[in-house]
Design a protein around this nucleic acid. Structure first.
Lengths: 351, 351
DNA sequence: CTGAAAGCGCTTACAG
DNA sequence: CTGAAAGCGCTTACAG
C-alpha cells in the first residue's frame, strides 16, 4: 500500500483559510454565496492541503448519496453494457455515480442485490425487467425513491418505466418471416426451467408464437434450450437441435443477435445457405450482426438510448425543486425497428 | 415515486427490542457476541420494522466503505466487462461493491474519475493500465489505500499489479506469423494522435514491430488508424487501408479479436481467402473469435481471471488483521497463450 | 454479555 | 456575506 498521508478535513481547510467550516462547505457547494476574496483564500487552502471532500460524510448529512443503483442481468455479450454506459453518461454532469449489480438472470439474485443496495441509500433504482420477487417488489415500493423499470413495458409498473414491448418485437419478427412466404418457422430461445430465466427473451418468443398461432401454424419449432444468458454457442447449439427436429425448417428467429450469429456460423459449418436454404433473423442490432457476412436481419433497439432516456428522466425527477411533489410516473416507450439485411429472403416456393 | 415510509433507524430497533443501539449493531456485525435470547428479540424487531442498516453512516463511522473503484476504458465490445464481472464475483462474498468508471481510453478522463472517486472514499482502487497523468499518479500514491494496476506489467508499479505483458503478446504474435513463413506482415491498431489512446494495444504493436525489425523486415505495414476503442468496423476499415497500401500482404495481426473479426468479414466480402490468401490473427480470445468461420487464431488471455485474481489479492490485503502492516506489493503475471485456429496457415511459397 | 459516551466529517437550518 | 450549534446514523473504544 502506498504511503498514507493523513487526509485533510474540512476543518483543516477552514483553519488554514481562517474561516468557519460552513464557509468552506459553501465554497464547494455554491461558490457564488461567498465573497471573492474569502473564496480565493479557501481555494488556496484546499489546493495546499490537497483536500478532497468526504462525500460519505456529505451524504449522511444531506441525506443524498448521488448514487443510482442499476440492476442488470449481465454486462458481457449483451447490450446492457450500452444501457449502463448511456445511463452513466446522462447522469455524469449531475455528478451521479452508478452502483451496478448483475443478476445473471436470477430473480432471487435480483432480490439479494436490491436488499444489499438499499443499505447504500441510493437516490434511485434502475432495474431491468418488470417481473420481480414479491419481496423485491415490496422493498422497491417502500424505498421511497424513484424506481425505473427498463427494457420492457410493464403492465403494472412500480413507478417509472423506459423500454419497449418485447412481445411486440416477437410479433414483428414472426410477421416479417410470414410475409416472406415462409411457413415452417422456428425460433431459438433459452430454457425456462432453470434458475436463470431470460424473461424478456421469453416475452419475445410469446409474441412470436402468438403470430404463428394466428396464422394457423404450429409452434413446435420454437426451441427453448441452453441456459441464459445466451451466447454464440447457444445459437449454434439450439440451431443443431432445431435441425434435428425439423430438417425442413425454412426460417428462424433467434431471441438475440448473439444467438443468431452463432446459428449463422453453424450454418456456414454445415453448408446451409443463408438465406436460400434458411432465413435467419435476430434481435438487438448488435455490431456483430451488421458486420457478419451476410449481415443479419434484426430488430433494432437502441440500448444506449434506453440508458440515456432513463438518466434524463431521473435527472428531472431527482431535481431538488420538483422533488417536493411526487412526480407523476412516466412510461416511455422507445420503440423498435425491423432492419432487413442479408439473412432473410422470400421463400423459394411460396404456397 | 412510490409512497415513502419513514425509514427505521438502529435507534428504533433498539427501543422496540428493549436494548441499546450497540447491541443492535453487534447483532448485525458479530451475532455471536450477543446472547441468543437478546439476539432473537433484536432480529424480530429488525424484521418487524423492515430495518435496513444505513451503510453510509456505518462507513463514516468505521472509516471503511467497502467500495472498490474499478477504472476501465470501456465495457462495450471488450473483455473488460469480464474483468469487472470476475472482480465483482470475487469481492461479493466479502460484501464489497464495485464503483465502475469508464475512461473511454482518455488519460485526462481517468484523472477526472480518480479525483471524483476519491471523494467516495473507496477502500482500494483498481485501474486498467500502467500509464497515468502526473496528477493521477500523485493522487493514487497519496490515497493511502491499496492500488492495483491491471492488464499489463508495469515497470514502476504504484503498488500492486495483476496482468500480462502486452509487449510479449505482440512478440508472440509476430513470431507465430514468421514461423509460418510469412514475410510481408502487417498489423492493425488504432490512432495514437488522438485524445483516446489504446496504450496496451500500442504495446502489443511495439512488441510485434520489435520482432519484425529483428527479422530484418519492414514495419511499414503496421497500420494505426481509426479511434480507440476498436470495433468490428475498425477491423474492416484498417484492413482496407492496409490492402490499398500493400495488396501483396500475406499475414496480419489485429490488436483485438474484435478488429480481427471485422477484418475477416471484410475479407469475405472482398473474396480474399483466409487463410490461403491471407493469414489473420487477433488478440483476446473473445467468444466470437472461436465461433467465426473459420475460427480465428488468437492470443488468449483470461480477462475474468484478471478480475478474480485482483479480487483475491485485495481481499487478502484489505483483511483487517493484516492491514496493520503495509502488505508487500504483489506483481501477478497471469500470462497468455497462443491459440492456433483456422485463420493462419503456412505461407504458400516460403522463401 | 451489554451499554453510555464520543465522534466520524460533513450539511441543514438558523441567526446575525 | 459569514458562523455557531445541532444532528445525520452508525461504530469505536472503553467500562463494567
Amino acid at each position: 500500500m502506498p504511503p498514507s498521508s493523513p487526509k485533510a478535513t474540512m476543518h483543516d481547510v477552514s483553519r488554514l483559510a481562517g474561516v468557519s467550516k460552513m464557509t468552506v462547505s459553501r465554497v464547494l457547494a455554491d461558490p457564488d454565496l461567498v465573497s471573492e476574496s474569502t473564496r480565493n483564500r479557501v481555494m488556496k487552502a484546499i489546493e495546499q492541503l490537497s483536500y478532497v471532500p468526504d462525500r460519505v460524510a456529505g451524504s449522511l448529512s444531506s441525506r443524498r448519496t448521488n448514487f443510482i443503483t442499476a440492476i442488470l442481468p449481465t454486462l458481457t455479450n449483451s447490450n446492457f453494457a450500452d444501457t449502463a454506459q448511456g445511463l452513466a453518461e446522462a447522469m455524469r454532469p449531475a455528478d451521479y455515480q452508478l452502483l451496478i449489480g448483475y443478476t445473471m438472470y436470477r430473480l432471487e439474485e435480483e432480490e439479494r442485490i436490491i436488499r444489499a443496495m438499499l443499505a447504500r441509500r441510493p437516490d434511485a433504482i434502475v432495474v431491468a425487467g418488470t417481473t420481480h420477487t414479491k419481496a423485491a417488489n415490496e422493498m422497491m415500493l417502500r424505498a421511497g425513491i424513484p424506481i425505473v423499470e427498463i427494457w420492457d413495458t410493464p403492465e403494472h409498473p412500480i413507478d417509472h418505466a423506459v423500454g419497449f414491448s418485447n412481445y411486440e418485437v416477437g410479433r414483428a419478427a414472426a410477421l416479417h418471416l410470414l410475409a416472406l412466404g415462409h411457413r415452417r418457422i422456428g425460433a431459438l430461445g433459452s430454457r425456462m426451467d432453470s434458475d436463470a430465466k431470460d424473461l424478456r427473451g421469453e416475452s419475445r418468443l410469446a409474441g412470436f408464437t402468438s403470430v404463428l398461432r394466428e396464422a394457423g401454424l404450429s409452434d413446435e419449432l420454437v426451441i427453448r434450450a441452453g441456459q441464459a444468458p445466451v451466447s454464440y454457442d447457444h445459437g449454434a447449439l439450439t440451431l443443431g437441435i432445431l435441425l434435428e427436429q425439423a430438417p425442413e425448417v425454412e426460417a428462424v428467429f433467434a431471441v438475440s443477435d448473439i444467438s443468431a450469429v452463432g446459428a449463422l456460423m453453424e450454418c456456414h459449418r454445415r453448408g446451409i445457405k443463408v438465406p436460400g436454404d434458411l432465413s435467419l433473423m435476430g434481435f438487438g442490432d448488435f455490431d456483430i450482426a451488421r458486420q457478419c457476412v451476410p449481415a443479419i436481419t434484426t430488430i433494432r433497439i437502441d440500448a444506449e438510448q434506453i440508458g440515456r432516456r432513463t438518466g434524463e428522466l431521473l435527472l428531472q425527477v431527482l431535481d431538488r425543486s420538483s422533488a417536493r411533489e411526487c412526480a407523476p410516473a412516466a412510461a416511455v416507450n422507445v420503440g423498435f425497428e425491423l432492419v432487413t439485411r442479408g439473412t432473410t429472403a422470400p421463400a423459394a416456393k411460396p404456397r
